[in-house]
Design a protein around this nucleic acid. Sequence first.
DNA 1: GTGAAAGCGCTAACAG
DNA 2: CTGTTAGCGCTTTCAC
Lengths: 343, 343
Amino acid sequence: MREVAEAAGVSVATVSLVVNNKPDARIGADARQRVHDAIRALGYRPNALAKNLVSGGSRFIGLVTDAIATTPFAGQIIHGAQDEAWKHGYILLIANIEGNEEAEREAISMMLEHQVRGVLYSTWYHRAAAVPAPLRETDVVLVNCYSPAGDVRAVVPAEVQGGRTATELLLREGHRRIAIINTTTPSPAHDGRLRGYREALEAAGVAYDPALVFNAQPDQSGGYDVVEHLLAQGPTGVFCHNDRVAMGLYDGLRERGLSIPEDLAVVGFDNQEVIAAHLRPPLTTVALPHYELGAAGVRVLLGVEDAPGDGRVEVACPAVVRSSVGPAQGKGAVPRAVGLRRS
Amino acid sequence: MREVAEAAGVSVATVSLVVNNKPDARIGADARQRVHDAIRALGYRPNALAKNLVSGGSRFIGLVTDAIATTPFAGQIIHGAQDEAWKHGYILLIANIEGNEEAEREAISMMLEHQVRGVLYSTWYHRAAAVPAPLRETDVVLVNCYSPAGDVRAVVPAEVQGGRTATELLLREGHRRIAIINTTTPSPAHDGRLRGYREALEAAGVAYDPALVFNAQPDQSGGYDVVEHLLAQGPTGVFCHNDRVAMGLYDGLRERGLSIPEDLAVVGFDNQEVIAAHLRPPLTTVALPHYELGAAGVRVLLGVEDAPGDGRVEVACPAVVRSSVGPAQGKGAVPRAVGLRRS
DNA sequence: GTGAAAGCGCTAACAG
DNA sequence: CTGTTAGCGCTTTCAC
């Protein structure tokens, strides 16, 4: 920078002013031009480190994730966070700590030492999480997880609304005997989606039948194994806890010569591209908004978006309609008008 | 830091020496203790920005990717790079530019301004790539892509070996009439895997039959659509260009009442977890080593691992054996011993 | 053994 | 309009 100043025959202060073209700096057009020329000639680049040092803070936002590899999900959160951070002139420092306590401690101190503007602490599936103590030294927002104490701002998927949406996808087509294949253990997803399912049923005037709720391992084999029991209850539509369960269900149904959506309408959850979009028929599902979660996370961190009173923002899970749901027909069916009235 | 010095009754220089516990700094045990106490008492954290400024360089490594969202692949590259960088005390600055020229320029200058140690330029599928000019100002290594001019170090998957491995998986079980479903356009993957296929065949003494090579769109529908033609050639085993093609193939086969691996042994490529591990039967495939690609990338960047003369390191694609390949049987089959002899 | 002082590259008053 | 000056928080000679 000093070199630029010398080459342009001005002082470093002037160079600083033109580089950041400060609004209220009155610089002679000639001087400004000479500076620009010198910059180009010398291939000068400002040193962000020095700039940050003097300004006190940095343009970094930390993102710590608990699993980047396992699923495409973490990638989406990173993607959303990175895009949004970028938009506001921030850079993401990412660290991923696969359950390693020490790595977590180190990652956090490293971020703190780099004077991050704040950090996003994210998990790959929606759950309660304990905020590591050192994070309290800076701004934190939880992404896809929340503090049971409710004392930290959090951005999470709207599970209840998602469950409602999934169920309405079936209701809308006239289905009334709708099963749900849930997971076996309590979790925000388990509880929320079930609640959404019940709310949607109730709103549509369909009685809730416990015999139609199944619990299975949340993967392909879970979906595959439950087919027999499921069919025994004669549903015309089924809401699967996730796309992988739906994938297993597809297999089980196919083996029995049943077809989708004619014999059974199925709705998934997660919208895991590789699966959902390419099953035969393509799966109608509800998306888990990972990208948005990451983006919203930086927005609340930066104060661009306000968190409501309880510091918890819920991001909607939108329906993704493909071809695995058709109109209800046969015995259990009801005139389409009923479903339509509700929507 | 000044505060710590005052609290401990020493100078900042001493604090600096203690904090970084310099090997040849002779500090009184008492003073050292007082410094440590003061640090704890004040909750002091060194300022990495200042440290880097004075030392001239930073502990940053830039990673620019062209697609983080689309597939789980980019996530794996990031993961590998991040783990390895971390191991050497470096932090990853990531930027992803979905084909956006300007974002790319900005991302690169931002990295340069932060005095990165070097940058990894990665693509989500293996291909030739043009290195943006400004990157020449720093150390660059290409990951999952390469410069046609061969003037930049690159880390890429060993496609030929992968193709050979996939084919051997079939040969080993006695298959001799082995088809390959490749993509429709030339690419390192297309060309390399085909070559590996031919090499493996030749090594096993099986004649290459052009009628057994098919070209299809590299996704589920491609695999599904080619079934008819494929079956017409009566292969006992098939090597699919990727797992998605295999997934489509599964569907087509199932619709015809054919079963895997009894009627047809199938091998995929990519090892896309969500698909491969959960198809029925689980798919035997060859993994694309994305994690390793990222890790090797930082290793060559840091000079921990040497790139061979041509600056191109190939990372092996390992076989992932699951259940979609069984012994060859029936007309086309050959005694198992033949296959075994080769392995 | 430890402190004083210079300086990393830049910004922000404050003078001129 | 533009230059001078004083730091930002830290490391690193070099004295004492």
